[in-house]
Every structure is written in structure tokens, then in C-alpha cells.
Design a protein around this nucleic acid. Structure first.
Length: 587
RNA sequence: GUCUCCGUGGCGCAGUGGAAAGCGCGUCGGGUUGCGGACCCGAAGGGCGCAGGUUCGAAUCCUGCCGGAGACACCA
């Protein structure tokens, strides 16, 4: 991989070994970005102590730095080396090395990002909406972030199992099914105002359940029938599930999320596994009865009064809850799916729940050094007032309405601009849809996933600044150059040479793509990639300002600049694709 | 009471233990009708909630406090 940090790490290590002996060959030279050069090695300061001990007299970090530099083989990699400050080693790369590496990036469809040599089977659990309920803002981030993580890990060569753990089981289904029967099954499924408006459907059922004893009684009986596997009840349940799936898929399609029906493994899937899972926990002596409920008490968790906190595995009425379900899920993923890593892209409020479920799973031996589970805590979405986003009436905000609003705002901004070309209404709508959705997704993906974030449509739809539309625009401008020049980007193969400072900065930035993607995947932090793409786009616009491409002074320069444009375009579109952000060809 | 997350320029956010803390919006001042100005350049503006500690070096690690959000027994 053409990663300058890696290349310099290897090179400086050789110098360390040559200067201080083979035992230093494994020492981390601490290569970091520098404001005074391309990169800097910060290892000298940390070597003072061991070298002082070894040599028996007080060592000076600047001298140590000089010793390293004396043994450093600049080769075809390093242009300038200088020791400064207390012992920083400033490293400037050779222009031709940068150009050569950029050339490799350009020549490789994978942008010189290698597939991992240690592929893992990874489950990414995300989105997880509830059947018979509308998706709301809370699902936005889990869906978008989870999809980005899945795409990134897949690109890196891991075997990714996407898992949409939909809420399709449990007590609410009694009332939902009874309500469906009350409405009349045929009518309900077709009527736009009933099942297809899931929020209204759910609320109506809820209201009857709370206010009508007779209905509530029927609903409770219906739950028992459902869990006992009564065929007619299951059929009605399936009706609700199917309506919901169709609805989920319209949302996923609109969002450009890769989830399909095949990725759905809802709570119902684990129904038959609940009893054996609980049995195993009992056999292992982890589960004990407390207040009539079967519980596990993982050490270190206490409640309000300092009392041990249970994970309830089976309720006192014999029923199961979401802890049982999550435990059965972990057991299944370990025993049957043989995964190495599980990433739960789920809201932060459930942090304690997952900590405890993971703790119990470790007690049971399901999780350990070879199988890891992590909770990617998704922070709450806030309104511009800094409070949890709600409608004016205080209800939850529907996802589709939020998207409509963003697309509409994007459209207003789009129309306010003087365009390079005229778009007919259909094309305009198509572009605006991509801009609006891209704006929402980029805003969502550009902040650290565990911090709360303010959903500000005005801000995210700006066509300048750190936004989706700005990045989309950067790609459009590049395409425009190729179009105007009548050149196929595929045929812009260079060779790349470095003449101007802006060319150098751009090429250097291109080399970081692989390590950024790797980090984003390893840490489950797609915002690193989002931030990088913005920096790359900025480097490109600076290049664009300073370095004429089609009007370059000579053919060699033109070929090189076209190649830089092509490499940037591919990197941007590949990166945006890993984030699941749509990219219009014109706008 | 326990636990999680968060406190960084007016606002919104980045920041692998390394030099003078960055970016976007906004503000002020310039450039440019260009290979798409939906752009670029420059300026003002904070020393990272507070107090200790570890370290050659802390926004980053540790401890304690303050402030905000949230979770904490049979809902998911």
C-alpha cells in the first residue's frame, strides 16, 4: 500500500537498528503528520531513557535524533531530513516517489488498497426497525452508519454478514393482530389509511388496548397463540410482517442502503432458540431464580440502591424478553455462524443492556478472545434547539418526512443557483433527490457516531462547506473537465509528475486513502473516511485553482494533471460509495 | 447510588501522547465570469469545563469535582 506513514516507519526502523542495535528494529518510530514537513518521526525523545540506561550516561534527544539521521537511508523515498526542536525528525518525501505512488493508485481499480490478510467473519447488526411501526429519526443513524461500516469492512476483504434484527415478535403483536382483524384483513391491507400508515395503525391498536378491556383480553390471548405457533395467528402475523418489509424496502431503496429481505433475521427467528439458550445458562449455573424471574447477575453491575443488577433471562410469567433474545442471538452467531466479530450499531441508550448481555455471554463462554462483540453506540439525534428531535406536537419525527424536508431544502438551494446547463424537470428532480439524500447521509456520517448530533437541514444542505453537496460538486467539476476535453477518464493514465505545490499536496493526499479506510473499518468509525474525503476535495479545489488542466503549458503536464484528476475522481467516488452516498454525474 | 456519552473560538464539529490546537458556517477584507465562483486567498476570534497526577511532552492517559444528555427488574 502506498502509505507514506508505513513506508517511513519501515525506513526509520532500519535506521534505528543500524544506530542502536537489532533490538531496536521493532521500535515504533512514531511517524506522525507534521506542520513543518510531510511527516515527522518523534521517536528520539522516548529513546532517552533506555539509551541512558544502556550507555550509562545521560543522553540528549537531539543527539539521538542526529544518530538516527546519520544512519537513515534516504534512498528513493526521502528528499529532506532535518532535526528540530527537542528532537523531532522532520521528513520530506521525494516528489518522484509521491508521483510514482500516485501512479500506482491510479492504475489499480482498488486504489492500491490491499485486501486484508486476516479476513474475519463479521456481523454488522443495524437498522433494526420494528414491524408495524414507522421508521423514525432514531433509525436514520443506525441504518446509515451500519451500512457504511458494512460496506467498508467488505471492501477491506472481510466476510460481512449484514443483519437486520427487526422487532417482529413479542407482546405488541397480540394487539396488532386483533386490530387487524377488527379492521377486516382485506380492507386493512389495501386501504392507504390503515396498515400502510403504520404509525396510525399502531397508535389505534395501542389506544384500544389501553382503553378497551375486552380488546386487551383478546390481545393477550392472541400473544399466547402466536408464541405457541397457531397457524392462523402466524398467517395474520405474516401479513403484518410483509406490509412492513415492503415499507422498509422503500425506505432502504430511497436511502441507498444495501439491506434486503435476505438480511432480515428478526427476533422471531430466534424464538425456537430461546429455551435451549436459557437451558444452557441454567446448566452452567449462571442463571438463578430471583423474585420469580430467571436472572443472571454479572459481577460489577449494581442498581439504584447498590443492589446487584440482574439480566432477566426469563420473566416470572415464563415469557422471554429482549435480553433472552439477544443472548440467544449471540449464542447462535457464535455456535452456528462462527463469527469473529459482532458490531451492534444500536442507540446509545442501550449501552448498559449490551454491557450486561455481553458480560453474561462471556460468563457462558460464548464471547472471549477469539469472538468479540462491540456496541457502536449511536448518539441521539437532536433538533436545532439541542433537545431530542420531536415534532411540534411532541411526537416522534417520521424518517420519510425528514427526508422529504431535506430533499425539498436541497431543491430550493439547487434552484437558486445559476447552472452550467439546463435540466428538464425530471432530471432536476433526480439530481435534487441525490443531493438531498447525500446531504443527510454525509451530515450523519461526518460526526463521530457516539456523540449526539444536531439535525440541521439548513446546515447540511449547504452547497459549500463540509457537506455532501460540496463533495458531489467536486466530482461533477472533475467530470466536466473530461467532458469538455473530450477525454475518457479511464484513458488518463499519466504519467504523473509533480511540478506545482498544489499537485504535490493533492497527490500526497491521494496516498492516504487506504490507511483511512482501514482505520475506519477497524475502529468502526466511518466519520474518519468522511473527513478525509472532504480534505481530498479541498486539496483538489486548490489544485483546480492553481493548475490549469486542459490549458496546461505542455502535453506532459496536461497528461499528468488529467491523471491526477482521474485519480481524485475515482477516490472520491469510491469513498462516497463506501459511505453509501449517491453521486450525480451532473448537477 | 452505579454506569454510558458529552463539555474544544459566536454556532456546528475534527483532533493516532508530540512543536504555535484544526475544519466548516458566520463576520470582516480581497480575488475571479473561470477547464463549472456551487470557487479561491487573507484577517479577527479559543488555549481545549475546573483542580490535581503520570510523562521529556497531555485537548488526548489516571483520579476527584462541576455542568449537560441518557440508561439502570420482568417493554424492545
Amino acid at each position: 500500500m502506498p502509505d507514506p506513514q508505513l513506508a517511513l516507519t519501515a525506513r526509520v526502523r532500519e535506521a534505528l537498528a543500524a544506530a542502536f542495535g537489532p533490538s531496536y528494529a521493532g521500535t515504533d518510530p512514531v511517524i506522525r503528520p507534521s506542520q513543518f514537513a510531510d511527516l515527522q518521526a518523534n521517536v528520539a525523545m522516548s529513546l532517552v531513557k533506555p539509551l541512558t540506561a544502556e550507555r550509562g550516561e545521560k543522553q540528549n534527544p537531539r543527539n539521538i535524533a542526529n544518530e538516527i539521521v546519520a544512519k537513515l537511508d534516504k534512498g528513493d523515498l526521502i528528499d529532506k531530513v532535518e532535526v528540530s526542536g527537542p528532537g523531532f525528525i522532520n521528513l520530506t518525501l521525494r516528489d518522484d516517489w509521491i508521483a510514482g505512488q500516485a501512479q500506482q493508485v491510479l492504475a489499480d481499480p482498488r486504489l492500491a488498497v490491499p485486501k486484508t490478510d486476516a479476513p474475519q467473519r463479521v456481523i454488522v447488526e443495524y437498522s433494526s426497525p420494528n414491524v408495524a411501526k414507522e421508521m423514525h429519526v432514531g433509525h436514520l443513524r443506525t441504518t446509515i452508519v451500519g451500512d457504511a461500516i458494512a460496506r467498508i469492512l467488505g471492501f477491506l476483504g472481510h466476510e460481512v454478514i449484514k443483519d437486520n434484527h427487526v422487532g417482529d415478535w413479542g407482546t405488541p403483536f397480540g394487539m396488532l393482530i386483533e386490530h387487524l382483524l377488527d379492521l377486516g384483513e382485506e380492507k386493512a391491507a389495501d386501504d392507504d389509511s390503515s396498515v400502510s400508515d403504520l404509525t396510525a395503525f399502531y397508535q389505534a391498536a395501542r389506544q384500544k388496548f389501553d382503553g378497551d378491556e375486552e380488546f386487551a383480553g383478546r390481545a393477550r390471548k392472541r400473544v399466547v397463540l402466536l408464541q405457541a405457533g397457531d397457524p392462523e395467528t402466524l398467517r395474520l402475523w405474516q401479513v403484518l410482517v410483509d406490509v412492513s418489509k415492503r415499507y422498509f424496502n422503500t425506505v432502504y431503496e430511497r436511502l441507498g442502503v444495501t439491506l434486503t429481505d435476505d438480511d432480515i433475521k428478526g427476533e422471531s427467528f430466534y424464538n425456537d432458540l430461546l429455551a435451549p439458550t436459557v437451558q444452557e445458562l441454567e446448566d452452567k449455573g449462571i442463571a438463578v431464580v430471583s423474585d420469580g424471574a430467571l436472572c443472571a447477575f454479572p459481577p460489577g453491575f449494581t442498581g439504584r440502591e447498590g443492589e446487584p443488577l440482574p439480566v432477566i433471562i426469563r420473566k416470572s410469567d415464563g415469557g422471554y424478553n429482549y435480553s433472552s433474545s439477544d443472548l440467544a442471538t449471540i449464542r447462535y452467531r457464535v455456535d452456528t455462524e462462527h463469527v469473529h466479530r459482532m458490531i451492534y450499531v444500536v442507540g446509545a441508550p442501550q449501552a448498559l443492556h449490551f454491557q450486561m448481555v455481553f458480560a453474561v455471554s462471556r460468563m457462558a463462554g460464548w464471547l472471549g478472545d477469539d469472538v468479540k462483540a462491540e456496541h457502536a453506540q449511536i448518539g441521539n439525534v437532536l433538533g436545532t434547539d439541542g433537545k431530542i428531535l420531536r415534532t411540534r406536537a411532541g411526537g416522534t419525527v417520521k424518517l420519510s418526512e425528514l427526508l422529504d424536508e431535506a430533499v425539498e431544502r436541497a431543491g430550493e438551494r439547487f434552484d437558486a443557483i445559476e447552472h452550467q446547463e439546463d435540466f428538464d424537470a425530471a432530471t432536476r428532480d433526480e439530481i435534487v433527490e441525490k443531493v438531498g439524500i447525500g446531504a443527510v447521509k454525509y451530515a450523519d456520517l461526518s460526526v463521530a457516531l457516539d456523540s449526539e448530533y444536531i439535525f440541521d437541514i439548513d446546515r447540511m444542505t449547504l452547497f459549500n462547506g463540509k457537506t455532501g453537496p460540496y463533495l458531489q460538486y467536486a466530482t461533477v467539476r472533475i467530470r466536466s473537465i473530461f467532458r469538455k476535453g473530450g477525454i475518457d477518464p479511464e484513458k488518463a493514465t499519466g504519467p504523473i509528475t509533480i511540478g506545482h505545490e498544489a499537485e504535490r499536496a493533492l497527490a500526497l493526499r491521494l496516498l492516504d486513502f487506504g490507511s483511512v479506510v482501514e482505520q475506519s473499518g477497524e475502529l468502526s468509525e466511518p466519520h474518519r473516511l468522511a473527513g478525509y474525503l472532504f480534505e481530498l476535495a479541498q486539496a483538489y479545489t486548490s489544485f483546480f485553482e492553481n493548475c490549469p488542466v486542459l490549458k496546461a503549458p505542455d502535453e506532459e503536464t496536461k497528461a499528468s494533471r488529467l491523471a491526477l484528476c482521474a485519480a481524485t475522481l475515482t477516490t472520491l467516488t469510491t469513498g462516497l460509495d463506501l459511505l453509501g452516498i449517491p453521486v450525480p454525474e451532473r448537477m
